[in-house]
Amino acid sequence: MKTRDYLLPYRFKIVGAALLAATAVFGLFVVNLGGVLVSGRVPGLVGRFGIPGLDHGPAYEFVCRQTDLDVTLLVFGFMLGLLLIALSREKIEDECMAVIRAKAFSLALWVSGVVLLLCTLFTYDVVYLNVMIGNLFAFPAIFIAIQRVLVFRFKKQNSHEE
């Protein structure tokens, strides 16, 4: 009896790890070299706040414009890498792994939720904006970390044949 689990094959975990590593290297270049490494003309939704003469009409518009793509690539690569790792099957995927995944999911939701609640209470202005940006990646990152710890403990606990 098969039930759909919406998980990708194991090889996508390796692809995700490689993408995460490549994005980290690119991030180091961006930080160390400074300036704009990648730019291009791309379509996107932009805000019209603060533009003189544009008091009327919608606050946002869809335009094609030349822009810095470094941050776009970093966020895209980092998030896609995390998603591929988090949503891929284990090498041997069985019901024990499904239980561990469910445990890790609820624990990660608890941790990221409590951290966000505390940050909402105790951070303001730009610090809160940084918290929000960090929060984009927090849940999948925390989920992966907890899942790896639980899988490691499970394998260690059950490694010896009795």
């Binding site: 019901e95 499970f154 059950n158």
Partner: peptide, 26 residues
């Protein structure tokens, strides 16, 4: 062996170990 049973039912050897020890209910 646990490995042979695991292969026969399509799970990992660690899962068979956990079931045998009562740590996991299949």
């Amino acid at each position: 062996t646990q490995q042979q049973l695991a292969e026969a039912v399509g799970v990992s050897r660690q899962t068979i170990n956990a079931i045998e020890a009562g740590r996991f209910v299949p």
